[in-house]
Every structure is written in structure tokens, then in C-alpha cells.
Write a protein that binds this DNA or RNA. Structure first.
Lengths: 191, 191
DNA sequence: TGAATTTTGTGACAAATATCAATTGATGAC
DNA sequence: GTCATCAATTGATATTTGTCACAAAATTCA
């Protein structure tokens, strides 16, 4: 018996406004997993075969550019994570998923996601609404990154998501907002 | 009789891999409209009440930052356009939609989109897949904008979408890739 | 606890890009 | 075709940010 399934359903209901009792999923569709700190959930060139729901913990997505790690996203408890393009288009991922804290997840394999989509229009709706939310997040992120100074990007992140700044190291935040570690350090020291 | 409905259906079928004969929509749900060059389809602070399918023409999305126009997207024939966040969350748009060429569209009012979603799981699927594509596009755009030099951003755009560079003025492209007009001009002259 | 490792901070300097001002070139209205 | 308007270019300079090198601080773990 997987206790975290109720937590997942609560997340889905909250995110989509669909009543919990209308959200159905077979327990066998999901796999519970635990990761230690700094473990890789997905590596570059693998095809992403799962959507994961994070019960607890913290995960980062990043890609390599000239050997340097550039973070694209941070995923915390009560959120989902995957390499979106890889999952949806069945292509090799250009990004890694790595835990930054000890992390507990519920894994939904891609083929089960398809089963849900094909057997239930509620799940089509869930997929659509969650994808819409991701779209809104991403278009805000584009605006956030484009045409803003390093200082404004840091201050905006601080305002919008102060908790992230507490939980993620500065070197990881730096590439997420598109500045070097040194510049971020100087911004923080107020120069 | 709206001739462009068949064109819309072909677009949806091509984008979603759903056979055309499974895509149904009442003609009365859609409104045909024509805009001249430089007309506004949506202004800041309005709630976006339509998704539009562009039959022909070119539209830009932009927002104002310190009185300056920053372009966020360009939408061409055989594509859809809207202010996504405004449409989905029913909030005032922070962006404008303006034609850059004479443009012919099919307008789908938001309430009709909801009708489609609530009466047909095919339309839930169409919505999901189109939103997925937008997500992939946006996450590529984030990667494209973050941590790239002005020159690389221009060259990447040139490579990925040379047609856009032909059709859109340099001043509009500049803010789209997050550089000033002057810098873009210098990049193009090869300095 | 203490050594090793990782992360963060600082300084000096270089490179990239923005800003401001002026000019040239292109386009559209009449 | 001409004038007016808008777009693109160019130069000079200021500002921002990156790069490299190293030191200080914090964290990890044996």
C-alpha cells in the first residue's frame, strides 16, 4: 500500500480543481523511490521515461554547455519533474536530473501516462492543465531572463521565491539566472 | 461558409496526429477577421478572450518595460496566438498583440474553447498536445536566451529560423533576443 | 575533531554590451 | 517625385559583466 498516492491525488486536485474523488489511478501504475543527495535520476542522452512526483526533497535540472553545468529548473516537494521535451517527444534528453537533497518520489512510467490518457478524459484534462501551468511558468521565466540586469534577476528571484535562495547553493542559482558565481556574489555583497 | 475552417482542421491534425475526420468544430464557434498592418489585436490590461489561428500574416507579442517595447514572440500563418497567461488564468494581459503584416485570422472565443473542452475529450487532447508543444518551444527559448552571448543568440536564431529574420525588422528582433538595436546592428556588420 | 573538499568572496583586469548622439538609408503618404 | 517618418548604422564612451587567480569561509566525512 503506497501512502504517498493520496498525497499525489491531493496535489493533482489542488492544481487542476478537479475533485479528488474524480481522480483515479491504479496503484500498480506508480513506483515509490528514494534517492540520496546528489544522485542522478536522469542523465544526458537517456530518454526520459518517467514523470516523477516529488513527495519530499529537491531536484535540479541542468545541461552542459562547454563543460559547464547550467541549471534550468529546481523542483521541490509537492511538484512534478521530468525532462519535458525528452518525455513528450521520445528523444534523448539534453539535460540531467539530479537530487540536491535526499528525495522521495513517486514515479509514473511514460507508458502508464499514455494508458491514463487513453482510458480517461479526466487524465487528458489533468495533463492539459498541468502543461498549461508549466507554460505560464516558462513564459514568465523567459520574461524574467530577457533584458534584465544581473541585479534585477537576482532581486526578482529573491522576491518571487525566497525559499529557493535559502535551499539552493549560490553557484547553482547563478547559472539559473544567467550570471557567473562571481557576479552573483558581488551583487549579494551589495556592490 | 468559412473556407478557412478546413485549413484550421488541417493544422490541428498535423500538429496532434489526430485524423482530420475526428476533429469537429461548429462553424458558429469561430469568427473570421482581417487586420491591416500595425493593428492591435490585444492591448495591455485587457483579458485575452480568444485564441486565434492565423490563416495568413504575421503578429508580434510584446510588453512594455520602462516604456520600451520588448518582443516576446512572433506568430506567423498556420500557427496559433494568444496571451497565454491571460487566456488561461483570466487575468489582465501584460502583453500586447499587434499585426506586423496584413493578417487574416480565425478567432475562437474563450467560452467556446471551454465548450469544446467540456463536450469532447478529443479537444482535451488537442489542447494538451498544443500546450505541450508550446512548452517545448518555451524551454528551448529559455536555454537559447540564458548564458548565450549576443552574437550566439543572433546566429542561433539565424540558423533555426532564417525566415523570421527576413520578415521581421531588426529593431523587433533585437529585443526578442535580448540585445539593443545597436548591438544587433554591429553583430550583423560582423564587428 | 580536524583535514580535505567544496563553496563563497575579492581584487585586478579584460571583454562584451549599453548608452547617447549623430548620420545615413529606406519607406510610405501625398 | 518629394518630403516626412521610421529604421539601420556608426562612433565615442560608460557601464556591466566575465575571467582568472587566489583567499576565506563553510561543509563534509572519516
Amino acid at each position: 500500500m503506497k501512502a504517498s498516492i493520496e498525497i499525489l491525488k491531493a496535489f493533482l486536485s489542488k492544481s487542476t480543481q478537479i475533485p479528488v474523488n474524480q481522480i483515479e489511478i491504479e496503484e500498480s501504475y506508480l513506483v515509490e523511490k528514494r534517492y540520496k543527495r546528489n544522485e542522478y535520476i536522469l542523465s544526458e542522452n537517456q530518454v526520459c521515461n518517467h514523470v516523477i512526483y516529488i513527495v519530499s526533497g529537491l531536484i535540479r535540472s541542468f545541461y552542459l554547455k562547454d563543460g559547464l553545468e547550467i541549471n534550468t529548473a529546481f523542483h521541490r516537494e509537492d511538484a512534478i519533474a521530468c525532462s519535458f521535451n525528452s518525455l513528450v517527444n521520445r528523444v534523448a534528453s539534453n539535460e540531467f536530473l539530479q537530487t540536491l537533497e535526499e528525495t522521495e518520489v513517486l514515479e509514473l512510467p511514460y507508458e502508464n501516462l499514455l494508458r491514463l490518457y487513453h482510458t480517461s478524459d479526466k487524465w487528458q484534462e489533468i495533463g492539459r492543465i498541468l502543461t498549461e501551468k508549466e507554460c505560464v511558468f516558462l513564459s514568465n521565466r523567459v520574461t524574467f531572463l530577457n533584458f534584465e540586469s544581473a541585479k534585477m534577476k537576482y532581486l526578482n528571484l529573491l522576491k518571487k521565491d525566497p525559499e529557493l535562495i535559502q535551499r539552493v547553493s549560490m553557484q547553482h542559482l547563478a547559472s539559473y539566472i544567467g550570471v557567473t558565481r562571481e557576479t552573483l556574489s558581488r551583487i549579494r555583497s551589495g556592490i
